[in-house]
Design a protein around this nucleic acid. Sequence first.
RNA 1: GGGAGUAUAGCUCAGCUGGUUCAGAGCAUCUGCCUUACAAGCAGAGGGUCCGCGGUUCGAACCCGUGUACUCCCACCA
Length: 901
Amino acid sequence: MAIFAAYFKSMEIPKTYNPVEAEAKWYPHWINKGYFHSEPDEREPYTILIPPPNVTGVLHMGHMLNNTIQDVLIRRARMLGKNACWVPGTDHASIATEAKVVAMLREKGIKKSDLSREEFLSYAWEWKEKYGGIILSQLKKLGASCDWERTRFTMEDDLSEAVIDVFIDLHKKGYIYRGMRMVNWDPAGLTAVSDEEVIHKEVQSKLYYVRYVIVEKDEAYDNDDALARQAKFDKGEFITIATVRPETILGDTAVCVHPDDDRFKKLHGKFAVIPFVNRRVPIIQDDYITMEFGTGALKVTPAHDQNDYSLGIKHKLEVIDTLNADGTLSAAAKFYVGEDRFIVRKKITKDLDALGHVVKVEEYQNKVGYSERTDAVIEPRLSMQWFVKMKDLSKPALSAVIDGEVKLIPEKFINTYKHWMENVHDWCISRQLWWGQRIPVWYDGKGNFVVAKTSEEAIALFKKDNAAITLADIRQDEDVLDTWFSSWLWPISVFDGFKDPNNKDINYYYPTNDLVSAPEILFFWIARMIIVGYEYRGKKPFSNVYLTGIVRDKLGRKMSKSLGNSPDPLDLITKHGADGVRVGMLFASPAGNDLPFDESLCEQGRNFANKIWNAFRLVKGWEVNTTIAQPQVNKVSIDWFHARFNEALSEINDHYDKYRISDALISMYKLIWDDFCAWYLELIKPAYQQPIDKVSYDATVNFFENILKVIQPFMPFIAEEIWHLLEDRKEGDDIIIALWPMVEKYDENLLSSFAVATELISEVRNFRQNKNISPKESLELLYSTNANAVNLDLFGGAVSKLANLSLLKQVTEKPAGTFTLVIKNFECFIPLTESVDKEAEKDKLQKEKEYTIGFLNSVITKLSNERFVNNAKAEVVQSEQKKKSDAEARIKAIEEALASL
RNA sequence: GGGAGUAUAGCUCAGCUGGUUCAGAGCAUCUGCCUUACAAGCAGAGGGUCCGCGGUUCGAACCCGUGUACUCCCACCA
């Protein structure tokens, strides 16, 4: 490393930071050193589990945000001396992956239906091997310090086994049952999906008013006699229903009215005739009906609507399933068989109208469910599925969050969580797919089933009742389990806590510390992990849940592939550097708030990296001279920055403790840009081509090192790069494992005295600007006393240096013919050859005076209010009194300045 | 229909216990600077009905009520 130092002494350091080189160098270095890897030891563990991205996925902006936050937390924990472990992995994402594999096969001209389950799965695994690692390798580009040796996949053998064991166990405990239920059917994915996977969208629909002919209970009505039907129609007795899905008319098995609805009382006990199919169905009464909606009469289609299904059970109605799995009409519909439901909707409307059944059509806004994965319109469909009873299972998970055992950040999500958990529905866990863990249930073909881990175990169980049964007689359930049924085990399964519940890893790392995830999957995943945690470990899976917002574009739209409004994260990294992008992502993203992303944020991040780089360039360019004495300016500047650094550090620590990651970043940004670069380095900087004293240099390097430590979690690459260029480092002295600085005691008075100095410097700079005086031209400055209030003895040198003063001196007499500045409560005079425009000066001071008097008056009013003095806290009253004396002193100073003119 | 949240500078947001010079930052804008670390920079400036109305309080951006606008979540009105 000594070579580097020599190299930079002799050659010019590039003017801009080159992230590409540093990233290529340090990431492999960290890996080789094993810094990301964790094994249980005597240190306190700090664990984060990655929300496993879909194995087929590519990195998008949401991942960038989410993983940057995780990396910041894990890197800081590592520096705090904890045993930091960030477990990565991927999710097999059954429906999403299967859809991709099906599409890939279709392109090759292969239909899924032509393949056996085994053939399909081999294609799917092939796909997974090929594309499954992409997203994780992309995370490496971001700098993610995951323990790659612990990478898991939700469908690897051990994790699948855990899924099966949990299914069997929950079934044994009575939490899992099988039943014919109305489920959300995805006609594109050809599978059931859970309630959570249905996205309701507001759409513009049409509400069709359709009239059905009424017949008496005992009336002979010949379905097949067209003439008789026409006669009945002509008679004009109808009941009109309203529907947005007229194609389901073919499956109607009743018409329902409210029992108290006077308009329909005369129809109680009568029947209606369904058009086309000419089926006689009863007119039933139920108080479920809203009399005000539509016509007050509801067509009942038990096979295709959740409520109708309930009505059907209650009133013992026939169930006619008129839809095929793919959303086309089935043979049971009798008409339009094999045509898609939406085409039929158009056709049947036209045909009904032609037959005189359509009374009117209204525009209507309603919500329609779409599949989260395939975006197909969900059809309620009756089918045999597996469910988890959630009510009792979820109780400990509800109280854990309410009692604060598991903290949600920000807290506003607690209410949402509570509401959901109190109204939790049973969870449909079977999916009519092949990619996933197959349900461990065997059927004997005679209506019996057993739950067992293997076919051998299943046979053994069947044999209890049927000694003759053989393997050939039984069949395993064709369905697989919902992806979330494996990911809810993640916090336990990644540490093999099911296979080996008392192993070293699970005992050490579980419960984990922080989970960083999105509010969108609070119920899908987070709540369910908490449920499993309590059920199987008797403990929470994590202590804190940091919920990020959604990354949006400038127009506030969610970033999505279909809108094409999402930048490619890897392009961003190439363009602005990983550190720049990380900083850009975190500049404006407080927990729970959406991130309005704009590429300029990454530019700002890149500029910040460059700023730090140039600070390094400056310091590294100094020639150190051990023989020269330390100037007084440097000494006080070092004392001041020491105080400022520690003040900022405690702020930053506080932000971290409260998970205010953006705030921590912003504090850091200001510390470096304003305090370190703009003030400290300018103060300490020797004149051009002059050497710096050793004491100041060492102090500066020490500050720089501390600054690098503080930025390391946010900007790991540049931190490591400069760390090594700044000093010769021993093998293994890498900043990634350096210890986080401790907050040291500091003198707060230094901070306030320095603030007076900076104000004075700004005033002089301002004065130059107004008078068009170049910064190169030095000025003289005299100041009157009230020196008890300001200690210019201490920072006078600093002021002279940065305001470019050739003279700074206290005077007792106001010199004539000078310009006057009033700083706080003292006057400053700048002698200039240029003649002073007395009127303008007076005017300026007069305005200043009026303003201050106004302020003083408001303070006096406050202080003379007895109730204020009696009620307000002592410190507040005291501070008001200080305001008063400060204002009075300032007014006095202004008046003196005026008098001198 | 139920619930939650948000509204502060052109934009994005801080403002943590109601009180620290009359409201802060970053970005953007404007002005002047190619000053020897950095023009991806430096120095400076302008910019506000703290969404409206009412209340509580000695004191309100902050607490309460109400209205408006937007966002999100949940829910089976065809």
